[in-house]
Every structure is written in structure tokens, then in C-alpha cells.
Amino acid sequence: MRRYREFLIPVVVFGLAGFLPLFLKTYYVHIGILILIWAYLATSWNILGGYAGQHSLGHGLYMGIGAYASTYLALNFGLTPWVGMFVGMAFAAAAGWFVGYATFRYGLKGAYFALVTIALAEAAVYVVSNWKAMGGAAGLEVKYLGTNPFMMQFDGKLPYFYIILVMTLLAVLTAQWLNRRRFGYRLIAVRENEEAAEAMGVNTLGTKINANVLSAVMTAAGGTFFAQYFTYVGPRVVFGEMVSVQILLFAIIGGLGTVWGPLVGAVILVPVAEIARAELGTQFQGAHLLLYGGVLVFTMLFMPKGIVGLVKSVRSRIWKTPDDSVSAPAPEGGAS
């Protein structure tokens, strides 16, 4: 039983969150959905970016693949997005494998890896913009059918809320599961010291590629949901740099490489950004972007481990548990 206890907390938290929309106005349910979309995407990104330490700045690529695959198949073949989602995930797996192999095989790291991922996502924007079958620059509209659970379409917001709630719960459970699995240890070992990991028998290339594939597959499923909820996909909307940047923003601010960080980041930041957009949107367009930038700079300077990291170190100070936050002699010790 003890093995499953760590999974109980997310289930309870998400179960309680499931009651919230019953007391909230539609507009707030919409904000709840936005929070969950970004929490889901950021949690998916976090597996590669936070756990394995490979900062992809082009996750829009996988989100776009998921969004376009299900939408295209629904429009042209009447395929239900519930299946289209898995088709998109399969394509994203292939793309994730290719991107991972093409970059990691040649030892790209840090800023170089990030630059290549930006370039690939940006290339996808232009490819799709010029691809007639994909609607070109105008994008694709999800055909409106009224409430139709089979086609993942609903008139109200509640069903969407519960779908993305369950998806985010699954993503958080995946992150929690990785925390205690060999694969998760390998990811963190790669982040902490890649050469040492390789010297300890970890196949670092394979580990990084697998992390990219898992992260891409999860992100693509978010893309399908995104398309169904907004009933529209456009090249810049799903493949664009705003998507790629926001995905990692919530993970970094919430706490890189933690189970709850991406969710906490989204819960705090999305409502603030939405209020800024709603209140200041007309006089001061892009106010929420300025806000994102400001918060990111603040986080980097004053709490590099994010909100969750800060809470952890405060807690360990209060309870006087073995203090991990105080920097002791670095393990790299000695000259090299």
C-alpha cells in the first residue's frame, strides 16, 4: 500500500479540484481550463526540460503536430479526435525521436540544443503556412457540431474542464512515477552530470532521446485538446514561439524538475495574466507578456529553484530536517 501513497495525494488534490466548477461562474471555469492546459503542457515539457535538464524551446512543434493531426483527420475523414489524439501522439513520437537523435547524437547541449529546437518549431510554422491541405496560413477550423461527446465537442465548459483535469492528473502521476523509477533516476543523472552518468553505465544518448519522445507524445495530446477547446488551429497559434515559451515559463517559475512545479506555476500565473489581459488589454496590449517577462526575471534572480523549490527550502528550515538547501562543499571538490 505504501508504494501507492505518493499517487494518492495527486488523486485527492485533483478530485477536490473537480468540485470547484460547480461553484464557479463560466468565466472562471474558462480560466480553470486555461490553467490546466498550461499546467498539462508544462508538466510534459518538464520531463525533458526539468528532469533531464535539456531545455527545449520548441515544444510548439509537438503541440502543433497533435493539434493539426486530430483536426485534419476529423475534418477530412470524420475520425473522432479521441483516436486522432493518438495518431497525433504517434507522429509526435516520430518527430521527438528525430529531433532527439539529430541533436543529442551530435552532442548538442544547452543553448545549442535550445536554438535547434526553436529553429525546427519555427520551420514548422512556415511549412504548415504553405501547406494547402493544412489550410495554409489561415489554419483549420474544427467543424462545430454542437454537443457531441464522440467528437470531443460540447456546448458548455464543464466537460472540457473534466477532460483536461484528468489529462493533467495523468501527467502529474507520470511525473510522480518517474520520481521513483529507474528511468527517472537516469534522467536526473543526465541532468546533474552527464559524463558521470555515462561512466556509471547509463546510456545517456538513449535516455535523452526517450525523454524527448515521452515529452513530445504528452505535449501532442495537449495539442489535440487545445484544438478541440478553441475549435481552431493556426500555424502560429500552435507551432509558434509564444506557445513554446509559455510552456517552459510555468515550469521554470513553478520549479524545474519537480512534480508540482508546473502546476503551481500555472495556477499562480495564468489568472494574473488573464486579468491583466482583460483589464489592460485595450489600452495596453501585451501587458500580460510584460508581466511574464518580469516574473521570469524575478524568479531567476531570487528563487532559481522556483516556487516549489522555495517552499521546500523554507520547510526544511522550519522542521530542521537534514538541510539540503544550504550549499555545502560542492561534490566536484578538489582540483581537476
Partner: peptide, 29 residues
């Protein structure tokens, strides 16, 4: 490493933010 040739690198090169036990488990993964 799988063939049984393993090194203890110069300057330790531990995984600093992992616990002692997690460091050991990576070694045996």
C-alpha cells in the same frame, strides 16, 4: 560499464542534488 570495467572519476563527479541512495541506485541501473 556493462562488461564490468567501471571507473571512479577524478573529483568524484557525484549527482549533487540526488540523495546518497539515489546516487547508488543510478550506479546499479
Amino acid at each position: 560499464v556493462r562488461h564490468g570495467v567501471v571507473q571512479v572519476p577524478e573529483g568524484r563527479k557525484l549527482f549533487p542534488d540526488m540523495t546518497v541512495q539515489e546516487n547508488l541506485l543510478v550506479g546499479g541501473s
